[in-house]
């Protein structure tokens, strides 16, 4: 029933005047919300809102066999679902290339920063804990990467470690959180429209952007990068985006710290 509205000329006009919808600046986020533990049956869960984008991350741990090249370590498995309820543009069916890229970019930042102590997931020979992170997009309005990373990171940091007893996973009260390295990875995504580089593009801006770049970092370093779409960035534009990322990621980390109780 809904039409895809076309606000290109209006948004271009605003950008020409140095502003955006809801009068935010080029390096500003929309309103961010983060709530934890909506799903107590999962080991960890978090819901992140970025403007009207709404994503839910759920974490489950399962007993599995280790990868051949890493026999003493558990693994992180990240998946995403672009639910058809989230946007008229999403359809039911197997994961699209967009969904797979989204999952891999979120996964890469968390993995590269060694957030999860995968050696602590070792149970016994040929048995390890696998950490499944599933990111569900409930409503789409742009910038899934940053919202997804925020939800996944918060769900992982607060995920409970089940016990292994008599060959089975036991999930009871009093479990402690899975072992992590104390760092927090967040990501900042930029879209390029009409020659302007904008942090946190919303759905209308994503429809117009020619290129996109995501930078994931923790307190110390860049942990993952991903450039997307047909257009290009100059090296200077990417360097500027890195500066903005290190500045803005402080706010994102403080939001995560606040909800996980640190």
């Amino acid at each position: 029933m809904q039409v895809k509205v076309n606000n290109r000329e209006y948004i271009s006009g605003l950008l020409g005047k140095g502003t955006r919808e809801t009068t935010r600046g080029f390096s500003d986020y929309r309103k961010i919300g983060l709530t934890l533990g909506a799903l107590p049956q999962a080991e960890g869960s978090a819901m992140a809102d970025m403007g009207d984008t709404k994503v839910l991350a759920g974490v489950k741990l399962g007993v599995g066999t280790p990868l051949q090249d890493k026999p003493g370590e558990g693994t992180l498995i990240t998946s995403t679902e672009l639910l058809p309820m989230a946007s008229p543009r999403y359809e039911t069916g197997p994961p699209s290339p967009d969904a797979i890229e989204f999952a891999r970019v979120v996964d890469r930042g968390i993995r590269a920063a060694n957030i999860i102590d995968t050696k602590a997931l070792f149970i016994e020979e040929d048995k390890v804990w696998n950490v499944f992170v599933d990111i569900y997009v409930l409503n789409y309005d742009g910038n899934l990467f940053d919202a997804g990373t925020l939800a996944a990171m918060s769900a992982i940091l607060t995920a409970k470690q089940p016990r292994f007893e008599d060959g089975a996973a036991i999930r009871d009260n009093g479990l402690s959180r899975i072992k992590t390295n104390g760092k927090i990875v967040t990501s900042c995504t930029f879209g390029k429209l009409d020659g302007h580089v904008l942090l946190d593009p919303d759905g209308n801006e994503e429809d117009m952007m020619s290129s996109r770049v995501t930078i994931a970092n923790d307190e110390g370093a860049i942990r993952a990068m991903q450039k997307g779409l047909r257009g290009a960035f100059s090296v200077e534009e990417v360097e500027k985006a890195i500066d903005v990322t290190f500045e803005r990621s402080k706010e994102l980390r403080s939001i995560v710290k606040k909800v996980i109780g640190e």
């Binding site: 809904q2 509205v5 076309n6 606000n7 000329e9 209006y10 006009g13």
Partner: peptide, 8 residues
């Protein structure tokens, strides 16, 4: 209609 903002 040109240049305006469209809402539903």
């Amino acid at each position: 209609l040109h240049e305006g903002k469209v809402i539903t």
